[in-house]
Each structure stands twice: as structure tokens, then as C-alpha cells.
Amino acid sequence: MKKLIILSLMLAVAGFAYAAEKDAVHSIEIPVVKTELRAGEGMDTTEKYCSICHSLDYITMQPKFPKATWVVEVNKMIKVMGAPIPEADARVIIDYLSAQYGTGG
């Protein structure tokens, strides 16, 4: 009987130590959420470059902007954030964003 108690005590202690060690590491797994861009000319180019550093909802959450604002944004991504986008592709992206997420102005 005594043995049994000691054994279960030991188990409890071992269990506790295990829990403490496991609790020391706190982990989460961030879900992957897919965001669809609007279909249109330049969508693939936009998706390819504009999803390197962040999800595409950075684009889809924006209100409609005049083209000038999209020019500023794309240039900011290239010049300030270092987005590796060749000039010709940048033009395609700006046209796409202005057409699909723009005011038409």
C-alpha cells in the first residue's frame, strides 16, 4: 500500500515536471488565409510580387484610390521596402490596381 502511494506520488511529481517544461514553451500556429484578387489583366504579376512580404488583403482592404495613390504605394514598396519588382512589371501592377481597386481617376 505504502509502495503504491509513493509510486503515484512519483508519477504526480514526474507529471508536474513534464508539464512545467512543456509550459515553458508557448506556441501557436497562425492560420493561412487565402485572399483572391479580382480577375483582370495584370492579376498574376500583382499576385506574384505583392505577396512576397505580406498577404494580398493588404491590397483588398484598401478603399478605392485614384491612380496617383497606387503609383505612390507601388513606388513605396519598391523604394522603401525593397520590393524586387522590374520597372515594366511595376507598370503592369499599377495599371491592374488602378483598374480593379481604383476610382477610375
Partner: peptide, 26 residues
Amino acid sequence: ELLAYERRMARFPEKTDLILLTSRPP
């Protein structure tokens, strides 16, 4: 119509259903 986006709800770890602005980074 001026709002180009629609709002979605999402549940992230240790969080309840919240309005999803962006997922990466959250």
C-alpha cells in the same frame, strides 16, 4: 460601393472571431 473591400471574420489562436484586416502579418 466606395469601400473596395468586404470584411471577413476569422479566428486566430487564443482569439475569438475577430474582423480580419490582414492575415500575414495578422
